[in-house]
Design a protein around this nucleic acid. Structure first.
Lengths: 156, 156
DNA sequence: GCAAGAATGTTGTCATTGACAACAATTGGG
DNA sequence: CCCAATTGTTGTCAATGACAACATTCTTGC
C-alpha cells in the first residue's frame, strides 16, 4: 500500500515552532498518558541498579503492607490479573525476594511473604524510589506534584 | 520454582475491607497510571463502533491540525517513534482515512493528508470522543477534570 | 562539486503489558 | 454429595515501546 502521488503545494515547510496537537488539547487522557510515560521512564532509569520495574515494585509494596495474603487478594488490590501476577511472582521468587506458603485455611491459595533478602532489597529499592520521586518533584514542581497527588488519590 | 511450604498462622483471613497499598500511597505514578488506564479503557469501549484506538485517534487529530506535514514531524509531535508511526499509518491508509503524497520539497518524506473518507470518519469519531470525555467528567467530576487538565497541560 | 554525515521512511526483532480462554485442584452451598 | 465458584497456572494474542539495520535522499564542510 505505497500510494504515493505527487504532492500539492500547501505543504507548509514553514516555521520550526513545532506542530499543534489540535483537539488533543482537550483530552485529559492524552496528557495523563504523557506524564505517566515520563514518570515510568524516570522510575525505570532510576531503579535500574536494582532491575526493578514499576509493576514489580508495586507488588513488593503491597505484599509488605499485607503479609500473608493470597495472590487473588493482591491482584485485586492492584487491579492486575491473577494470571499476570502469577508470572510476576515467579520472577520475584526466582530472585528470592518473596516466598509463597500453602495457606492454612485454603489449600488452593498461597500466602505471600517477603523473604529476608526481599526486605533488604526493598530497603534499597525504596531509597531509589525516593530519589525518583524527588526527581519527579523537580520536574513538575513540588507544589504541582502534591496537587496532582491529592486530585488523583480520590480514585483508588 | 514451586517452593510452597506450610504457612504460619498470621495469615489474617480478616475483614473484607480490602488491602492497603502501603507506600504506594505516596507515588504519583501509581495513581497516574490507574486513572490513565481507566480513561483509555473507557475511550476504547466508547469508540468501539469506529474501531479506533487512542494512538490512531491522536494521529488523525494531529494530521488534521497540521495537514501536509511529514511523518517525522507528526511522530515528534506525538513523541512516538517513526517506526511505530509508519505502522500506524499503514493501517489508516488501508482504511482509506489518510493519504501520503511525495513531498515537493524533500523526496525522502511523505506529506500526510486526511482523505474525504477520513474526514467523514473523523467527524463521527469526534462525536464518540466527546461522549467519552463526558463520561470521564461524570466519573471524576467536571471540576476535577478541569483542574487535572490545567495541571497536566503545562508539560507538552 | 563532492564526500561524509544526517535525516526519512521502512522493516525486523525483542520485551512488557493487558486480555481472554482453558485447565486441575479445591472449596462451599444447597 | 453434587455443582458452581474460586485459585493458581499456562497458553495465546494484540498493542505498545525500544532498538537496530537498511536504502534513499538531503545537507553540510571542504
Amino acid at each position: 500500500m505505497r500510494t504515493v502521488v505527487k504532492a500539492a503545494l500547501d505543504e507548509w515547510p514553514g516555521p520550526k515552532e513545532g506542530l499543534g496537537i489540535g483537539q488533543l488539547e482537550n483530552h485529559l487522557g492524552y496528557f495523563l498518558r504523557r506524564l505517566q510515560i515520563w514518570v515510568f521512564q524516570d522510575f525505570i532509569q532510576t531503579l535500574r541498579p536494582m532491575k526493578v520495574r514499576p509493576a514489580q515494585y508495586s507488588v513488593l509494596l503491597v505484599i509488605e503492607a499485607n503479609r500473608g495474603r493470597s495472590q487473588a487478594a493482591i491482584a485485586q488490590t492492584l487491579s492486575i490479573e491473577r494470571a499476570r501476577l502469577a508470572r510476576l511472582l515467579h520472577v520475584l521468587e526466582r530472585r528470592r525476594w518473596i516466598s509463597r506458603r500453602a495457606s492454612a485455611n485454603d489449600a488452593r491459595s498461597h500466602s505471600l511473604y517477603l523473604t529476608k533478602d526481599g526486605e533488604k532489597a526493598l530497603a534499597q529499592i525504596k531509597s531509589l524510589a525516593k530519589q525518583h520521586e524527588a526527581q519527579l518533584a523537580a520536574f513538575i514542581g513540588q507544589r504541582r506534584r502534591q496537587q496532582l497527588l491529592d486530585l488523583l488519590r480520590e480514585f483508588g
